[in-house]
């Protein structure tokens, strides 16, 4: 098992007392597999993956276990030292976020932002790093990458920025890609393009995907398995098709009902 999460709990100390965000999450992810975590905002789905990455705020309390299979054996992520996590982030587990307008640094050129992760994890510098960065932009289908790599984020559209984020995330050939609402902030047509791109890149690189979304339609096209979270707990889990056909939990039924009827989810999955 590539990633094995057991009984993950996250709570936050606030001035108004302790708030429990995740109340025991179990999750297993095999190499190349694709799992969706679905739930409304506040269900604890984002907090779960941020906890895996060690990216939660200082007032967060995390317990449980999450082991990542590496070349040198199993590695416990929860409570790992900062330096250990820095080697994992961006290299073994990469992440893309919801709002591509704010997730790229507006003060730095795209070149800087892609190259720094290549330099950090692949040790390439200077021209070699630039070459690798341009290749990544090509892979995410950004036209004229040699010129656009000199752009600042604000010179790109939202969809293009999310492509840049994906290029950055996949630049070091990670084992796992965590995508936190990757298309929510985008226009509908652009959403489809980005989802297609992700499916294609997944096929090519065999990266495992952990897709977090509130949109069951997105999960249907991308994932093999599904977790439904609510109030910090998993209320339903299993393969996509059975759940879509016969949801066991009332909440899942509600979510399914929210998927537009006319647009029947297409079950043809990119990886199959």
């Amino acid at each position: 098992m590539l990633l094995d999460v057991r009984d993950l709990k996250v709570s936050f100390d606030t001035p108004d007392g302790v708030v429990e965000a995740v109340r025991g999450l179990d999750l297993r992810l095999a190499a190349g597999e694709s799992v969706g975590i679905v739930g409304e905002s506040g269900s604890g789905k984002s907090q779960s993956v941020l906890a895996l990455m060690g990216l939660l705020a200082d007032n967060a309390r995390v317990s449980g276990s999450a082991t990542l299979q590496t070349d040198t054996g199993a590695l416990e992520l929860i409570g790992a030292k900062r330096r250990v996590l820095e080697r994992i982030r961006g290299a073994r587990i990469a992440m893309i976020f919801q709002d591509p307008m704010t997730t790229l640094n507006p003060h730095l050129r795209i070149a800087t932002q892609i190259k720094e992760v290549i330099t950090r994890h692949r040790g390439l510098r200077g021209r070699a790093a630039t070459k690798a960065a341009i290749e990544m932009l090509e892979a995410v289908k950004i036209p004229d990458p040699a010129r656009r790599i000199r752009y600042y984020p604000h010179q790109f559209s939202g969809g293009m920025r999310q492509r840049v984020m994906i290029a950055m995330a996949l630049a070091c050939e990670p084992d796992i890609l965590i995508a936190d609402e990757p298309t929510t902030a985008l226009d509908v047509t652009v959403q489809a393009d980005i989802l297609d791109l992700m499916a294609e890149l997944r096929q090519r690189t065999n990266v495992a995907l952990l897709l977090i979304t509130h949109d069951l339609g997105v999960v249907a096209g991308q994932c093999e398995r599904l977790l439904v979270m609510r109030h910090g707990e998993v209320v339903e889990r299993g393969a996509i098709d059975p759940i879509f056909e016969a949801p066991a939990h009332a909440y899942t039924r509600d979510l399914l009902a929210a998927v537009p009827k006319l647009e029947t989810p297409h079950f043809a999955r990119a990886s199959s």
Partner: peptide, 27 residues
Amino acid sequence: MRSNYVRTARAKGLSAARVVWVHALPA
């Protein structure tokens, strides 16, 4: 330091020093 792009920089595994002095400093 609470901005999304600093979270991105940290998610990329950059060193704390680089996050602060390269990514956070201009803002």
